[in-house]
Design a protein around this nucleic acid. Structure first.
Lengths: 84, 84
DNA sequence: ATAAAATTTGCGCTATGGCGTAAAATGAGA
DNA sequence: TCTCATTTTACGCCATAGCGCAAATTTTAT
């Protein structure tokens, strides 16, 4: 599992996809993070105002991590276009 | 350039390292993002409250991107321990 | 269809991010 | 050492994140 993200939408979609792939509900993530279900929802829906602590907390709950790397030249297709 | 980050501090340090490696000042990043120098400073110093829009904006200014991936088992050493 | 689960939205609240502006502190070069 | 550039910190301001709590909406299964 390795998804490039440049926008809040892409990050949100990636997190939702991974969560579902792991068979977890927002409630499950909420329990692991002590964040409200509404907060998880907001993040997954691409709220750009979501704080770093919140994103990192959810990442940890999903056993994910961030990698910061140089931008790679890629097609105009976003991850959302590729995966339904 | 590829740096794993799990904490606001690690993200901040990574961004600062990359910025300097590219010979840019916080003022340069500020000019490219329309964020205040103080905001860049806050981010680089690991403020967990920094918003996603801010992080993504700075990433773009540094020609970087996020990759979300499964956590990798690694030593206890953080990136800060490895690089001065 | 319909019941249950899951997700989204709303309200009032407190805390704080990022803004403009400016000054203070730190770092780097002559 | 002494500037000048860079970074950090402060103050007042407005906007909003995330909280508890709850209701509404959507999705999933039976």
């Amino acid at each position: 599992m390795k998804i490039t993200a440049r926008t809040p939408d892409q990050i949100g979609n990636a997190l939702r996809r991974v969560r579902k792939a792991k068979g977890m509900t927002q409630k499950d993530v909420s329990a692991r993070t002590n964040l409200r279900v509404a907060t998880i929802s907001s993040l997954e829906n691409g709220d750009p105002g979501t704080q770093m602590r919140t994103v990192l907390s959810v990442l940890a709950a999903l056993d994910l991590e961030f990698v910061v790397q140089d931008r790679v030249q890629e097609s105009q297709l976003s991850i959302e276009d590729i995966f339904s």
